[in-house]
């Protein structure tokens, strides 16, 4: 997967690149408007992360340039502007998603994966992790052809884990992903434990290995055992 990160804040850009790299992913970066324009004209990507406030120009202009070039890249806008208008105009202009800063890197990764999936498999939408197979259109989870019944939240959680496999995902990020960041939740995210426990139980009972591990009390990780 080839990703272009257009973000002027170097520190943030670096974190994103480090998080996204690996597993055969390649990241390129652009820190200014002109740099970004040059890259989108020269190369092709699977997904472009686009910050709207850039030195040298408006990020939305880059978006329209991408569309003018008839490029098929997925575009995920990352903006500090929590503005409904920006979001709407961004999506109207052809962006695939809009993520407001600050965000969890795990959320960013999950969104990118979703965009790339939608772009690449326009028919059947399948996802898998070892013996766990997901049919995203039918919203079904099978383990060695055996159907596993999950609740909506458990299903979302599983996709989130697979999208961020090998990474520690914080409870905070999971809570925001499943319940939305508008909810003014208590700061105690331990109730997530129940959901993770149920998911693990169901997967193991269906014959999968127990891939999800608790990490230092901060979060969880899905990884090969």
């Amino acid at each position: 997967m080839k990703i272009l990160v257009i973000e002027d804040e170097e520190s943030l850009r670096e974190s994103i690149v480090v998080y996204l790299k690996g597993e055969g992913n390649i990241c390129e970066v652009a820190g200014t408007y002109w740099n970004a324009m040059e890259k989108i004209n020269l190369y092709s990507y699977d997904c472009i992360l686009l910050d709207l406030t850039l030195p040298g120009g408006d990020g939305l202009k880059i978006l329209s340039e991408i569309k003018n070039l008839n490029k098929t890249e997925g575009v995920l806008i990352i903006s500090a502007r929590h503005s409904l208008d920006d979001k709407l105009s961004g999506l109207e202009m052809g962006a695939d998603d809009y993520l407001v800063k600050p965000f969890h890197l795990s959320e960013l990764k999950a969104r990118i994966m979703a965009i790339v999936r939608r772009k690449n498999f326009s028919g059947s939408n399948l996802m898998s992790f070892n013996e766990i197979n997901l049919d995203l259109l039918a919203m079904e989870v099978r383990i060695k052809e055996k159907l596993v019944t999950l609740t909506k939240k458990e299903y979302d959680l599983l996709i989130y884990f697979i999208s961020n496999q090998g990474k520690v995902i914080t409870k905070n990020a999971i809570a925001e992903h499943l319940w939305g960041d508008e909810i003014d939740m208590s700061d105690d995210f331990d109730f997530i434990y129940t959901h993770i426990k149920n998911l693990r139980k169901k997967l193991v009972e269906a014959g999968a290995k127990d891939y999800i591990r608790s990490m230092y009390g901060v979060g969880y990780k899905l990884e090969n055992v």
């Binding site: 480090v18 600050p102 890197l105 520690v168």
Partner: peptide
């Protein structure tokens, strides 16, 4: 928001770097 975004992302990154007690 920008420094907060950086802190948040750095924490996320920190968490991936190794083993913690």
């Amino acid at each position: 928001m920008t420094p907060l975004a950086i802190i948040n992302s750095k924490l996320d990154s920190l968490l991936q770097t190794g083993t913690f007690s």
